[in-house]
Amino acid sequence: MNREQRNRRTALTLAAVALGMVGFGFLLVPLYDTFCDLTGLNGKTSVIAEESAVRLQGVGNRWVTVQLDASINDALPWHFYPVERRVRVRTGAISTIHYRARNQARHAVTGRAIPSMAPARAASYFNKIECFCFQEQTLAADEQRELSLRFIIDPELPLDLEVLTLSYAFFRVPGDTGAEVADEQGEDDDV
């Protein structure tokens, strides 16, 4: 019947649209990431290659303060702190700063550092050339490690920004099972 066919076609088309929208929901994830990279939304700092850093070099001559901050997520048994609490750096010059991390656990633990910048507006001018946050860090039992970061601040940094805060939050990598074995044993006791 003509009308029944038409109904079926409408229904199938709409069902396809609905399925497409499920896909779109998932597509929002990479879209959001791209958007964040472009705008520095949520204070995600930029990454640039060595060569492009050279291009920024020596252009500006402004001094700004970078305040260093460190946080640690509950699940990560590390000590983590900045070696220098605050540094004065020149825009358009490559600078290096250091953090220190020490694994408190008696086994290897893997963590990942998530950078964040305040004010978020400054994030897109803060260009990292080399950073410990690019990779996951695995620290052996009791290991202490110096974590360094090389960066260059774009001389275009708006004039009203003189104090930038760079914060790293160290998280335990999901699925890192180093201590879970020990954890499981206690599992039954506490419920």
């Binding site: 709409l14 609905a18 929208m21 499920v22 896909g23 929901g25």
Partner: peptide, 9 residues
């Protein structure tokens, strides 16, 4: 049709 699937996602 446009919004509910996004919630499902």
């Amino acid at each position: 049709i446009a919004a509910m699937p996004v919630l499902a996602g």
